[in-house]
Structure formats: C-alpha cells, structure tokens
Design a protein around this nucleic acid. Structure first.
Length: 432
RNA sequence: GUGACUGUAGCUCAGCUGGUAGAGCCCCGGAUUGUGAUUCCGGUGGUCGCGGGUUCGAACCCCGUCAGUCACCCCA
C-alpha cells in the first residue's frame, strides 16, 4: 500500500515554521490597518467565468494554470488564482462600491498550476490590498507608501526596489501594441522562440523578456511612453511628484508590463535580486476598467498583492526573522507517582488554576506517565523556564515544588516546595 | 509544457570497479529507589522513492514513472 503524499507544489506548514507566518501576517495586518484598510474575506472557489472575464481569456493564467472542474451540477468552478477578481465580485454583490470609496485587504491561498520552483508554488499565499472609488494618483502613492513602510517594519527595505510605469488607457495601449507588433514583425526571425509566440498572444510581454538578444533588438522599438494620452501622462507625473516629496525612491521602467489584462495607468513592482528567478515580492497597479467589465458601474480602482512565501524567503535569506518568535512554555507540570490517578488529577487541576490566575501563561501538563527522570527530561526539552513538580508527597501535603530549569539569576535556590496558595504567588513573581 | 541535477533510517549524509546496508543527530532504556541539558553503556528504527529489465547476484547498470531542487516559461 503506497503512502498518499501531498499534491505537488502544495506545502504543509509545520509547527516549527508557523510562528514565522504568524509574525509576517500579523505585521502586515497591523501595517495596513494603520492606514484604515479593512479586511474582507471571500471564498476560495468561484465561477470560472469570473476569472476568464477579469484576468483575460488569453493569459497564461486562464489558459493553462487554473484549477478548474465541474461541480455536481455541471457548473464550471475554479480555485482562485488571484484575489482581485473575487474582491471586486464580492464588493459589487454587496453594494460596497455604490457611491462610496473602499479601502480593503485580504489574505489567503491562491492556486496556479505551474511547475514549482524557488518562490513559486501551486498553492501559494497572497496578501492583497485594494482601494476603490479614488482616481487620483494620491491613492496610488498611498499604496506605495504603505508597502514601503511594511518593508521597513519587516526589516527588508534595503533589499527591495520599486519599479513603476504607466500603461496608459486601454485605447492608448492598443495603439502602442499595434505599433510594437508592426515593428517586431519586421524582425520576427531574429526574436527568440518564446517571443515569437508572444507576438501573437501577448506582445507587451516581449518587453520584459529575459533573452539578451531580444532585449538588444528592443532598443529601437517604439516606446510606450511616447504613446501615452495626456490624462495618464499627467497622472503618472503627479504620482512621481508625490513619491519624490515623500522620499520614496523608485525607478521608472518603461518595459514594465503586467501579466493580467485588467491593468492600466499606474503599474508597479517591488523587486529583489536575492530570491533568484522569482524576484517580485509585491506587484500591482491601477485597474479602472475592471469593475465595469464585471458588470458594475465604472469605478476607479488600484491594488497590489504580495506573496507571503517570497517575503518569508527573503526574511530568511536576510536573516531578519526575530529570534524570539517561538513561544516556549513558561511552566511544565510533572505528575509522578502511582495514586490511582490522584497525582494526575491534582496536577491537571493545578494547571487549570494557573491558567485562571495568569491568562497569558503557557503551561504544559505532562501526560503519559513515565519515570521521574523521563518527565524531567521532557520538562527540560520543552524549553520551559520552570518545572512544577507534583508527586505523591505534594499531593499528600497539598503543596507544589517549583524548580528553576534555567539560570535562576542571583539566587542559588534551584527548588522550593510551598503550599499551593503560596506556590501560586511565587509563580506570579517569577512569571511577571 | 521544456531542460539540468537529485531521491539510502524521523533528520543530515556515507556506501570503492554490481556480492541483499552503515555513521552522526533524534528517540527509548540504564549508570543506588523523587530531580533535566554534560559524559558513559545499551536499544528501537530502512522491502535503499516506486515499477519493470539486465545479471548467478542490483542501493549501485538500463528503461519507465513519481517526487524534490534550480532554471526556462509564467508570476506574487
């Protein structure tokens, strides 16, 4: 009988590393909430059409990366490959965008059927931030200020750089796309294989091709910023002024495009060179057309998403994970002796009393019996600072023995036996 | 989807030109009966990823398959 193993690219999060996740998640939540963003949650499963209509029919995500299947009614459902579409759907469905602005965030797993590699999984986790109903560049800037602050909070601000670009309106981009395709078609046989394919599917993506020869050919290609309309040009200029004033450094990268169809105007990426091939740690932009595209009224929108796995990877390579994350127990309570369950009962009751007296305590009760020696070993291994020893003597005399397992400081005392009430007072001193 | 490298105990790995497996750590027990981290002694644990093939004989060679890692692609 062969063992069942996890699905490829879908990782288990083990107790050893979950504190790191809790740290990152809570830091991000703290940061975005400091800007007044509120959490929204929506299902992992949506109708397939939602993603087809938002992300774009001919994108790689929709064409070959979605987990799509029919439910028992024959309806096509898809495990969400990103959050923005669901977020817009949920907002529309509940009238959250009707004559009002929204600043929202969410986090959770996303699913994409890709070949796993460093910083890329089939189930991965994103934190998304979206702002609706605001069309000025100030809100674009707020997103960038917020993420910049987050990098500082996490201690990775030296390792990431901001790249920004403007894709203009859909109309302007369309004109540019034609010009680019015209230009590239003339030199098609010189392009690399992937770029030749993209010429038909997604020509803008040729701009950020990693192929050096292709990049060289692009030197003479038409530039996107020459095709920008006045409105998006002004929007972009103001954004840059705000960023300058706010001391956010950035690099304008006019080759920066996005893989999802719904972006226009501002796009940006926070990138690092410390993670290998998957160096984008946070990316986003403006998507003013999406709400309408999904059946709502025209609504201004900007957003971004960051990959939690990539952030954690970055924290690890930079050694920026705080030492003290693992929460060790304060107290380990032993229960030694054969008294028909009386010792265990006494010990567990004491543990309950401690938890009532000290709500923040982390108290581990020994279970499973065993010799004194083996219980002490487990107490030590647990990392607890203090062992509370309950044996037959303590039960008979209604007392408890407190033993310091770590350096008890000045005192040479390593163990005291006290009546219950005094023992609890003693613990209060120690734990405080 | 393509390519390269890898797959031996829970973990990290060794195993010479093919002769049916080892170390360290971990875990468990012991070194005078209720006192842990050091030290010493002993012990548990593997159909060598899986399935075929070649061979008298395969962890080692061949084929397939699955998985991991990295890169392409894609993207957070």
């Amino acid at each position: 009988m062969s063992k069942i193993q996890a699905i490829r690219g879908m990782n288990d999060l083990l107790p050893e590393t979950s504190p790191v996740w809790q740290y990152v998640e809570s830091t991000i939540a703290q940061c975005v909430q400091a800007y007044g963003y509120r959490e929204i949650r929506f299902p992992l499963l949506e109708k397939t059409d939602l993603f087809k209509r938002s992300i774009g029919e001919v994108t790689d995500i929709v064409e070959k990366e979605m987990y799509t299947f029919d439910d028992r009614n024959g309806e096509s459902l898809t495990l969400r490959p990103e959050g923005t579409a669901s977020c817009v759907r949920a907002c529309e469905e509940h009238g959250l965008l009707y004559n009002q602005t929204q600043r929202l965030w969410y986090m959770g797993p996303m699913f994409r059927y890709e070949r796993p590699q460093k910083g890329r999984l089939r189930q991965f986790h994103q934190i998304g931030i979206e702002a609706f109903g605001l069309q000025g560049p100030d809100i674009d800037a707020e997103l960038l200020l917020m993420t910049a602050r987050l990098w500082k909070m996490l201690g990775i601000d030296d390792a990431v750089t901001l790249e920004i670009n403007s894709l203009g309106t859909a109309a302007a981009r369309g004109v540019y796309k034609t010009a680019l395709v015209d230009f590239l078609s003339g030199i098609k046989d010189q392009l690399d294989e992937d770029s030749q394919r993209r010429l038909d599917t997604n020509p803008l993506r040729i701009l950020d091709s990693k192929n050096k020869d292709t990049q060289a050919l692009l030197a003479n290609a038409p530039q996107l910023d020459d095709y920008l309309d006045d409105d998006s040009r002004n929007h972009f200029e103001s954004l840059k002024h705000i960023l300058d004033a706010a001391n956010i450094s950035y690099r304008v990268n006019n080759r920066l495009v996005r893989g999802l169809d719904y972006y226009g105007y501002t796009v940006f990426e926070w990138v690092t060179d410390k993670l290998g091939a998957q160096g984008t740690v946070c990316a986003g932009g403006r998507y003013n057309g999406l709400v309408e595209q999904l059946g709502g009224k025209p609504t201004a929108a900007v957003g971004c998403a960051m990959g939690i796995e990539r952030l954690i990877l970055l924290l690890q390579t930079l050694a920026k994970i705080p030492e003290s994350l693992a929460s060790l127990p304060d107290v380990y309570i032993l229960a030694v002796g054969q008294m028909d369950g009386k010792v265990e009962g006494y010990a567990l009751a004491l543990a309950e009393r401690l938890r009532e007296n000290f709500p923040a305590i982390r108290c581990l009760s020994h279970c499973g019996g065993g010799s004194f020696k083996s219980q002490m070993k487990k107490a030590d291994k647990s990392g607890a600072a203090i062992a509370v020893i309950i044996g037959e003597d303590e039960v008979t005399s209604q007392s408890m023995s407190i033993k310091y397992l770590r350096d008890s400081g000045d005192s040479k005392v390593t163990q005291v036996t006290l009546p219950l009430a005094q023992g609890i007072e003693k613990l209060a001193e120690i734990i405080a």
